[in-house]
């Protein structure tokens, strides 16, 4: 574990600070109670947590390195998600959304994080 002050309680989707998230390693991200997807500057997946893999039914090794909005989740390639990353250099919002996990439309909370100080963009998903 790195020297990051995590809250004692289980971190929540809305509560966890972006810096704390960015400092966590893959094993730590896998313990979070929501799915975490990290995208590099080119939009390629470089973080894909175990929870997200379970939600979506896709293995991290299948998804890593792919362009997220075109080759993994075209369902978020719209103004509500991808468009906000493109249009807002500084972004940290939680939106109500519907994702389709294993063919069932499911209402989810999605947090979008884009921060000039953090090179990675994050998408957090809670069912």
């Amino acid at each position: 574990m790195q020297a990051v002050a995590l809250p004692i309680d289980q971190p929540t989707l809305a509560g966890i600070p972006a810096e704390a998230l960015d400092a966590m390693d893959a094993a730590a991200l896998d313990t979070l109670p929501f799915g975490v997807i990290g995208l590099d500057a080119a939009g390629l997946v470089d973080v894909y947590s175990a929870v997200e893999a379970r939600y979506a039914g896709l293995k991290p090794e299948t998804v890593m390195g792919r362009h997220f909005f075109t080759a993994v989740a075209p369902c978020m390639n719209n103004a509500l998600v991808a468009g906000r990353f493109d249009g807002e250099p500084e972004l940290d919002v939680v939106i109500d959304y519907v994702l389709t996990f294993r063919m069932r439309p499911t209402r989810v909370a999605v947090r979008l994080i884009q921060n000039p100080d953090v090179p990675r963009r994050y998408i957090l998903i809670q069912r």
């Binding site: 075209p74 369902c75 978020m76 719209n78 109500d96 519907v98 994702l99 389709t100 063919m103 439309p105």
Partner: peptide, 21 residues
């Protein structure tokens, strides 16, 4: 809707008043 692929939600979400499909 019993089963749906993600693009269904993509197409229908903007029509829905609330994020419920």
């Amino acid at each position: 809707i019993e089963l749906a692929n993600p693009l269904s939600a993509q197409v229908l979400l903007p029509i829905a008043k609330t994020p419920v499909i």
